[in-house]
């Protein structure tokens, strides 16, 4: 079966986010889920029982922002709402969106 260009991310409270596979692959965690011998690899659907919808939404925003800017230099920073900062930090850590990888 040919891989779909899109994948679905599901939040803890059941919200689904559909986005480009290529954009989501910057997260080594998601990459591992989609490449390994897991259900996620076959269905293109990743469940995140620990990330709530409003955080996952921001993460998906980030994936798209990253994808849009991947070839550009001097990219304007994405706005992070202060109240979401710590939760987003935990999610980023979980998804391995680490500075070293940029």
């Amino acid at each position: 079966m040919a891989e779909s260009k899109y994948i679905t991310l599901v939040s803890s409270d059941g919200y689904e986010f559909v986005l480009l596979r290529e954009a989501a692959l910057i997260s080594p965690t998601i990459k591992g889920m989609l490449r390994g011998p897991f259900v996620e690899a076959q269905t293109g659907r990743c469940n995140f029982p620990e990330i709530s919808a409003h955080i996952l939404e921001k993460v998906v925003d980030y994936f798209n922002y990253w994808y849009r800017n991947r070839e550009k230099e001097d990219v304007p920073d994405m706005e992070i709402p202060v109240e979401m900062c710590l939760e987003l930090l935990m999610a980023a850590n979980y998804l391995n969106l680490d500075p070293q990888l940029r």
Binding site: N69, D77, I80, N93, P99, R102
Partner: peptide, 18 residues
Amino acid sequence: ALGAKSLMTLCIETLAKN
């Protein structure tokens, strides 16, 4: 580096500002 900053960097910068 080319491309956007990592999400973690963005968060940490926001946190440092606030």
